[in-house]
């Protein structure tokens, strides 16, 4: 029943809102902050459609209270393209047809972003395990795997070119 003032950084911008303690982070992001790129697909921490980065780590924002993110840095899909330029993952998903209905895509990309940061040169099996907390009903995953491979190569090439 307690109300709490929550201050957090969302996509680089500091925001403060007063919320009920029970407000789920995903509702805070979608309803209070009107960032609707983060989706909801289940009640059981199964689907990963709500995946966002909290302090750099991908978590399911339906299984975290907004108050827990007080002081945290939260990143959502809306932050991934910088200055209108698509991120290599976004490019990869586009090039390789890694999305169909688009509903799981934001969560998938947020998971993959952190995954590639930790494992820049993954095997196919590692990619499949890395995204096993995100369900997709449309693609059968093959082209999501290809999209992440594309991004891994692109990121490596970009880094090598510097």
């Amino acid at each position: 029943m307690s109300e709490h003032e929550v201050t957090l950084t969302i996509n680089g911008e500091s925001v403060t809102r007063s919320v009920e303690a029970r407000t789920l982070l995903v509702h805070f992001i979608r309803e209070d902050l009107s960032l609707t790129g983060t989706h909801i697909g289940c009640d059981t921490t199964s689907c990963g459609a709500c995946t966002v980065l909290v302090c750099g780590k991908p978590v399911k924002s339906c299984t975290m209270f907004a108050v827990q993110a007080d002081g945290a840095e939260v990143e959502t899909i809306e932050s991934v393209a910088v200055g209108g330029a698509l991120h290599p993952l976004q490019e990869g998903f586009w090039e390789k047809h890694g999305l169909q209905c688009g509903y799981c895509t934001p969560g998938m990309i947020m998971t993959a972003k952190n995954f590639l940061a930790n494992n820049p040169n993954p095997t196919e099996d590692e990619i499949r395990r890395g995204i096993s907390g995100n369900l997709c009903r449309c693609t059968g995953y093959n082209k999501i795997v290809e999209a992440i491979q594309y991004a891994a190569e692109k990121i490596q090439a970009d880094a090598g070119g510097e």
Binding site: G37, A81, Y103
Partner: peptide, 21 residues
């Protein structure tokens, strides 16, 4: 051909029913 609809989905700008407010 790469899909014309993808840029909005890739950037969180799809518009699903629950996004309607």
């Amino acid at each position: 051909k790469k899909r014309k609809e993808d840029p909005r989905f890739l950037q969180g700008k799809g518009n699903y029913v629950d996004d309607v407010k």
